[in-house]
Simulated scan of single mutants.
Amino acid sequence: MEEISKDSFVTLENLVTILKTSESTVRRDLDELENEHKLHRVHGGAELLHSLQEELTNQQKSIKNVQLKTDIAKKAASFIADGEVIFIDAGTTTELLLEELFQNDIKVVTNSIHHASKLVERGIDTLIIGGVVKTTTDASIGNVAVEQIRQLNFDKAFLGMNGVDDIFLTTPDLEEAVIKKTIIENAQKSYILADSSKIGHVSFAKVARIEAAEIITNHSDLTLMKKIKEKTRVFEV
């Protein structure tokens, strides 16, 4: 619990090293702590329990599940065809998608100034959405951003999401929820890039029903994934 309090996340591998014990013992203890509602078990480790409104900064998110997020980003890139107009919203998993863009003649629309800078450096045709910049996620939000997105159409949209259960896609911030909802409404097809820590998690603001997008994830909880697969398409990495 001391280790997890430092970054809100701890890996199984680090605990094995620190505690000088077996992986099976650490797994058993983590399961026990989860049963006591002291933490939330995720693939490869555990994280602190979060309130509905709690949101980690991009810096905090960037150290979590990096390899899994990379695998998810690579899978997402495989759905992009030459000549398409795609939307990539702000986030650490969607940021990894930028490195996988090798298609010809694509146009990328984004509401992240960080994403836009990287895309321009790579010589990719880029349109940035304006608005008020939310410092924790680097996302343009507010009415200006919403109105700009409403004027556009996208072949595909790729979004991060804080919470994905078998009913709703959710995020902690009301304004960011409106942005994500508007993106989904204006895309022919939307994909949610969600590592295992997001599956089963519920945040404050509802973005859309689970049927509104397809899910790309590494999650392996058979019971929950079965419920989600009954309502939408899931791509597992």
Rank of each mutant, 00 (worst) to 15 (best):
E99T: 09
I106P: 01
V108S: 02
V109W: 02
V109F: 00
T110L: 03
T110M: 02
S112E: 07
S112Q: 09
S112G: 03
I113C: 05
I113W: 13
H114K: 13
L119F: 10
E121Q: 14
R122W: 01
G123A: 11
I124L: 03
D125F: 14
I129M: 10
G130T: 12
V133F: 07
T135H: 15
T136I: 13
D138K: 02
I141M: 02
I141N: 04
I141D: 01
N143E: 15
V146F: 12
V146N: 12
V146R: 14
E147A: 15
E147S: 15
Q148R: 10
Q148E: 15
I149R: 04
A157S: 15
F158H: 03
L159N: 11
G160A: 10
N162R: 02
N162H: 10
G163A: 08
V164T: 08
D165F: 09
I167T: 12
I167R: 07
F168D: 12
F168Y: 14
F168A: 08
L169P: 00
P172I: 07
P172G: 01
L174F: 15
E176F: 05
A177P: 00
V178Q: 13
I179Q: 03
I179H: 00
K180F: 00
K181Y: 14
I184M: 10
E185Y: 11
E185L: 13
N186A: 05
